[in-house]
Amino acid sequence: MSTFEFDGAGIEFRPGQTIGAALVAAGQVSWRTTRVGGVRRGLFCGIGICFDCLVTVEGEPNQRACLVVAEPGLTVTTQEGTGHEHD
């Protein structure tokens, strides 16, 4: 089974799935917190329009989980706020 890493845990997926689909299939519904209210968000529109499913992939923040295709060995992490480090 193919897996990628999400916040340190292995997420099994089927090649062809996006990161968002794989996370939902694994029971995760949210993978970022908002920058104002700090509340959790996950998929909403599912087609790249709403940018609610932003997540950090391979250290690169603000990737749409509904668009990025899952690949074995990827490192995916929950995104806090803007996803960028403060000074």
Binding site: R35, N62, G81, T82, H84, E85, H86, D87
Partner: peptide, 16 residues
């Protein structure tokens, strides 16, 4: 007279 200008706006960032 009009003089055209463009301003670029980025994604939200921490204060950098």
């Amino acid at each position: 007279l009009p003089r055209r200008g463009f301003v670029l706006v980025t994604e939200p960032l921490p204060p950098l």
